[in-house]
Amino acid sequence: MSSSSSPNTVELDILGQVCPACMLVVLKEVNQRRQEITSGQTRLLIRTDHRNATVTVPESIRKMGYRVDVAKVNNYYEITVDRR
């Protein structure tokens, strides 16, 4: 029986950044790592303290065909981008 390996987690820290700059930075990173994420090789973990980013980032990334989860951690949020 074979098992798939867990993806590598790449962290993107955009704490302190506000929209739209934080969104532009995230989109650039996601586009640069498109093949790694869609192949399941990489998971992107975004750290943000900008509340609006928890709406705008998932909205845009999901439209690109990825799976996005959001969780609150301490006083900021973690947005995880995986292949669907």
Binding site: G16, Q17, V18, A21, D49, R51, N74, N75, Y76
Partner: peptide, 11 residues
Amino acid sequence: LKEFRLGPWPP
């Protein structure tokens, strides 16, 4: 909301 954070500075 326990979300107050001072900083960090942006790029």
